[in-house]
Structure formats: C-alpha cells, structure tokens
Nucleic acid binder design. Sequence first.
DNA 1: ATGGTACAGTGGCTAAGCCACCTCGTCAAA
DNA 2: TTTGACGAGGTGGCTTAGCCACTGTACCAT
Lengths: 256, 256
Amino acid sequence: MDTSIQRNPVYQQLNDRLRSALAAEYQSGDRFLTEREISEKFQVSRATANKALASLVSEGLLEFRRGIGTFVRRDLIDYDLRSLVSFTEKAKAAGKKPSSTLREFRELEAEKIDDEIREALELNPDDRVWELERLRLADGLPVILEHRYLVHSFCPKLTRTQAAGSLYQALTGPHGIEIAGADEVIRAVLLSRGEASLLEVSSRSPAFEVTAVGYTRDARPLWWERTLYRGDQYEFHSRLGPVRSATPARGQLRQH
Amino acid sequence: MDTSIQRNPVYQQLNDRLRSALAAEYQSGDRFLTEREISEKFQVSRATANKALASLVSEGLLEFRRGIGTFVRRDLIDYDLRSLVSFTEKAKAAGKKPSSTLREFRELEAEKIDDEIREALELNPDDRVWELERLRLADGLPVILEHRYLVHSFCPKLTRTQAAGSLYQALTGPHGIEIAGADEVIRAVLLSRGEASLLEVSSRSPAFEVTAVGYTRDARPLWWERTLYRGDQYEFHSRLGPVRSATPARGQLRQH
DNA sequence: ATGGTACAGTGGCTAAGCCACCTCGTCAAA
DNA sequence: TTTGACGAGGTGGCTTAGCCACTGTACCAT
C-alpha cells in the first residue's frame, strides 16, 4: 500500500538534509548537488541520483534547470511555513499594512491550561507554557484575534518584543526551531460579544475559528492556537481534484 | 519555474490514458502496463518508462509492487472526486444515513442567470443550463443546502431521478463526463431566515458558504455551485506545511 | 496432501555513453 | 572600446545492456 514512500537511501539523506536545513545551509536559489556529484558521493548510479532528485523536485523542494543544474526552492516552503504562523506575510500579499497588538503575554504552568490542550501539547502538569493573545490589524482594521500557547522549553528566552512581532522569525531564528507544519480544524462560528468588540464588528457576526497544533520537524508539538478570522474579511481557497498540486487551502484576506 | 511538469511524452500519454479512463477501461487494482511493455510500445528505454510510471505513482494514480508489477489505484481518485460532488459518500464515511430533497429542478436559458456565473461557466446568453436546488440530510437532519447550475450541453438528458440522487454518478456514468476537479472558495456567513428555516437552525446561524466551479478533464467548466454547510455540523480540516501529502482540506461531518 | 524447488516475470539499480541545452570565457570584427 | 560569434565544459535527459532481489506459479519428490 506504499504509494510513494522512497526507500531509496539517497532520497532519504538528501531529504533530511534539505528539510533540516530550513534555517541554514541552503538559501533559496542555491545550487544543489549535481547528479554526478551525488552518484559519486553516495556511490550510486546517476539514474538513482536523478530519481532521488526527481522526487524532491515533485515535492517542491528542488527545481531542475536543464543544462544548468538543480536548485533549492526554499522560498515556497518558507512562504508556506511563514503563512502558518505569520499574519504579516499574508497581509502584505493582500497589499495591506499589517500591525499587531499584544494583549496578553505571560508564562504559566501547564496545569492551569485546559486538559485537552495540555494533552495536545504532550505536556506534564509541571511543564511551562507561554500564553499569548494578539490582535492583528490590516491597514488599521482588526481582522484576526489569536490565542496561542507555546511550549516554554522550546523558546525559554522569548521576549515581549519578539512576541509582539513575527513569532515565526523569533522561533526559527534565535531559538533555531524547525517548524514542520500544523494540523488545522476550521469551523464557522459566531463571535461572542467580547470577541466581536475587539474585532470591531457587531456582536454575533460570523467568523472562521481555526484551531491548530503546530509541530517541529521531529514531530513534537510546539504550539496550540485558537484563532478567529473576521468572516467579512477572510476567505479560504482550495483546488480539489486528482491533480495534487501545491495549493492546499489557505486563508486569504479578501481583496475587493 | 516549472517544478514538476513532465515533458516526457510517455508520461503524458499514460497520464491521459489513466485520467480519461476514470469511468472505464481501468478498474482499481488492475495490472497496469509493465516497464518492459511500455519501453517496447513507446520505443523508449526502460529507465524512461520507469520515470513516467514513478511520476504517476507519486501522483497517486498507480502503485508499484516490486516483483509483481504496477497497479491502478482508481479507488483513491474516485473517492476524491466523489467527495467533490457527492454528499452521499461523506455522510456515509461519518456513519450517517444520507438522504436528499430535490427542491428545484428545471432547465433555463443562460441569459436568466447571473452574469458572473454565466461568465464562470463560459456560456453564451442563448445556451442552456440546469438549475438544481437540493437539501441534503444526514440521519434525517438537514445539513447542506445546495444551489447548482449545470451546463446543459454536457448532460442534456438529465432526469429528475438522477438529479435527486447521485449527481456524480449521473455525470460520470451515462453522460460519460470526466470530472477533473473544482475551484472552491469557502466563506463564513450568516444564514438568511429562509436558509436557516430550511436547515432547521435558528435565523442568523453561522455557516460555511462554499462557492465552487467544477471542471471537466479538458478544463471546461461543468457546473457552478453555492452550497451552505451548517456551521454546527461541519468542520474543515487541513494539514499544512512542507510535506505535500495527499490530504487537502475537505469538509467533514462532525462526529461528536 | 504437503512442501520444496526451479523458473520466468517483475521492478530496482548499475554502468557507460550520447545528446540537447546552458553558461562563460575567448577572440575577432565593428 | 564595444559587440557578437564561437567553442569548451558542465548540466540534466535519455538510451542501451545487463545484473540483482523479489514474487508468484507450476512442477516434482516426499
């Protein structure tokens, strides 16, 4: 039943090398190893080297350029990852000026948070977490209300300034964390009066509620979040069908 | 900038053959052509044949079994496609008994429908469309309200019975249409009084509004739909990150 | 009936090599 | 000095020929 699992050890090693180097070693656009280099270094044939590369190309990690070489495509991945955590990029992409208000920033014991969340984060009651609440604005208009718990051990030195800015940058930069992805559940909900007031819409307005758990590259939970997106400002796009392209659903600021 | 576009003509032909045969020729689990057959038939090397097959495997269309052969995986694709059009499968998957009420079923001129929709369907004013409105129930509970326009020329002989049942089956079966996918936009909205009453929720309840255009394999628009999902019954899941797996976002009936 | 064995067919992979394509330096002409 | 033609060397694309590991089957001895 294995469809595309590459047992090819060359693929495995190159894959690890690329994915573990999210924060360093390879920049987007860098030349990658050539087929001939790989075949020599790993003592495999060029065909096998090509096959390993082809898999990585189809996963979007590399790009073939005939007659030139194979190149790293960190930009796309970066974009995907950034958009997981960072509202900033999405807003810019929609041509809006992003800003942020840090409404809550404190450290607390895991025993004080919801059991369900603590379990999702695989924490013991005496572990610690960061609690953040941020209101995010596009062109001064509040559009996202975000509540997030971060596993403290991953980023013990998180500062208020970092928390108010790009969390993605703070995590992947100084703390050297490699974010792998997130599991999301998207629901349609009504905003409570408090939420509505913060988002400056009338009470009981529709909104997207995204509950997500983010993971590091070695599959350890890194954060839990519940984020509310103003329904009148956000829409999700997806392209379904047998063509498994590189465009999963993603929230976008409306551009009307 | 082409990441994984296969210029390989063998890949192209095999791909066409597999995708166009969604309704016939290949059953799930069937043996596909062997590398040696392909290399002979297309006058290419076995390595090239393997590369073409490997691409199709990574797309989920085929499955390699070492020492045995290559096999067709129609089931997965079918499932994806069915879930595009067919509420029935999703409901069954959630362990609910699906049923349906056909509230509207008529033929009308394209000039009478919204300009935006007519353009999305690439129709002239004197073309014809089917208009359908269906209320879909899970275990007797109304959960989806669906409004759909179908391009008449694709399925001129659509019957009321077919429209009330599985549209996917009616389109891909008798009419031999090959559905390729759909572009969707998902919004969070409030239900109008009429919609809420049909879905048996209180007025101004939250809901997902999915607006989608479905396409045939040759990229011609086949339908336009606006579908409302009860917010208290549906949630969307997605797994984001650099691992481009085969799990795009898809609405699911909650199973609480 | 059972179990071992040889065989033929499969995809996985290697090896050596030609081709089309691209970059970049060189060198001649303007 | 600038421009353009040319070619060397490197790249991925693909071929050819062949061995290997794995699988199912048919056969045969027990």
